[in-house]
Design a protein around this nucleic acid. Structure first.
Lengths: 256, 256
DNA sequence: GCAAAAGTGTTGCCGTTACACCCATGT
DNA sequence: ACATGGGTGTAACGGCAACACTTTTGC
């Protein structure tokens, strides 16, 4: 951008895609699974294949905004955490030259149902969207398998040194629920006693007066300390997660 | 990229820039400083201001290749480590709409002189390039101050959990020299005894039979274990650092 | 009462830190 | 000899993993 105008780069287009994770617990499953929504392509290239939700970058919007917008338009979802992942720009990753700015995002399990129900009530349900277990994906369009693998790698790393796990939980939660998030992402069991101490020592949890009552001893409910960012992004401002109340209709800019 | 062709995004152009760090020890200085080369702009916008080396993305090259190429063309330098930093794409970051894919890179101190000497011998010396202390930069063009800050943050973080420091050292080095790299990046003194043990325990150092003789007891020379990547990039392949022997002339694609 | 999850206590291990100390070399 | 950096030893501290144990509920 500091140079002369290019002879011709009109053929290079910029797209924005998002890998958005949430957790889903199968009816009688031991652990929760990491799942993500994909969109079925209805035109070439890769017609019929599943692809990451996304779209073209608009001239008048920033990258973060483009990620939020295209995600809402294709899936009807608004993430609780959003972060840029990587820019993919190999020449042969698409039949035409496309540079994809890819984001990754988190969405609380309770929000999935709420947001989709809101759209359904408006007769505005997303089409061609389906949820997949991140651990066992079919062959996707373009280089999207590699992209999801990278996003998963970042998620697993980041859960170890930040508080992003809270991006997958509702406002109030028990320590067991928080632990389940970690277990699902890391794919292994954690010691409840040690997990409790670490979580309490982190200074990001606020105990409430509420309890979650169930089959056994009631568990205290905690709240996330919102003064603390979910992740330290250094000198970068956190990607705005626009409070998409009355989310933009995703049919007005259909993908297919 | 999974969507329909945009109505018009021809006005959005893609640039690639690189923040390339090396260390320089002032004549009688206590510590080495982190320095980076900047290019003086010779046209609007920001004419006269210093900016990161970079250029427009070519239609026929990948992003990594574009970073290497534009860096060589503007500064004559070929990095020893290269990694994508972030994609900047705010609407107002430039008078015209520009998405910048920014890389950050490391260069060994001995290579700086060697590469520049090679260019000088060919009467092919870079112009409008100057080196700056990363800790005290003047106001740069565009959002480049923020970008350098972010690159520095990444460098300091990454030095704590990877072996990138070796990207700033020649093939053989003493533990004191390796420690000086860490001290310069982190900006604080490290205990020589403890540093030695940590370095040896890391399994990335191979002791040689050589010694660096100086004013005091000779210090053993070590070599970096090249089987180990400088940094774990997960499912991403390490950015190729093309062995730019006989580096592309940077005057054939002048920046100004 | 019993099973099972919530929550507390205790111990050992291991990596890091601080710092004392010896070693080898140039002057 | 002595100053200086190279290199080794060691003890205190703190975080973490393992696991025994107590508490509180539903059935």
């Amino acid at each position: 951008m500091t140079r002369t105008r290019p002879e011709s780069d009109a053929a290079t287009r910029v797209a924005v895609s998002t890998v958005i994770f949430t957790l889903r617990r199968a009816p009688h499953a031991e652990r929760a699974d990491v799942v993500l929504p994909l969109v079925r392509r209805t035109r070439d290239p890769f017609e019929g294949h599943w692809a990451l939700p996304g779209g073209w970058l608009d001239e008048v919007e920033g990258l973060d905004a483009a990620a939020s917008r295209t995600l809402a338009e294709t899936t009807g979802l608004a993430p609780s955490y959003l972060e840029q992942l990587y820019a993919f720009g190999d020449v042969d990753r698409s039949p035409t030259r496309v540079v994809s700015i890819v984001y990754w995002a988190l969405l609380r399990g309770d929000e999935v149902d709420a947001q989709l129900a809101a759209h359904a009530a408006l007769g505005d349900a997303p089409e061609n969207v389906s949820w997949f277990d991140a651990a066992s994906l079919p062959p996707l369009a373009f280089d999207h398998n590699q992209i999801v693998d990278y996003a998963l790698w970042r998620l697993r790393n980041k859960v170890g040194y930040s508080r992003i796990a809270h991006g997958l939980l509702p406002a109030a939660f028990t320590l067991a629920e928080l632990r389940e998030v970690y277990e699902a992402i890391l794919g292994r069991r954690l010691d409840p006693a040690n997990f409790r101490r670490q979580a309490e020592a982190s200074g990001t949890l606020i105990p409430t007066d509420g309890f979650r009552t169930g089959n056994h001893r009631p568990a205290r409910l905690y709240t996330y300390n919102r003064d603390v960012e979910l992740a330290d992004r250094g000198p970068l401002l956190p990607a705005a997660v626009p409070d998409t109340r009355g989310p933009a209709s995703f049919s007005e800019r259909s993908m297919s």
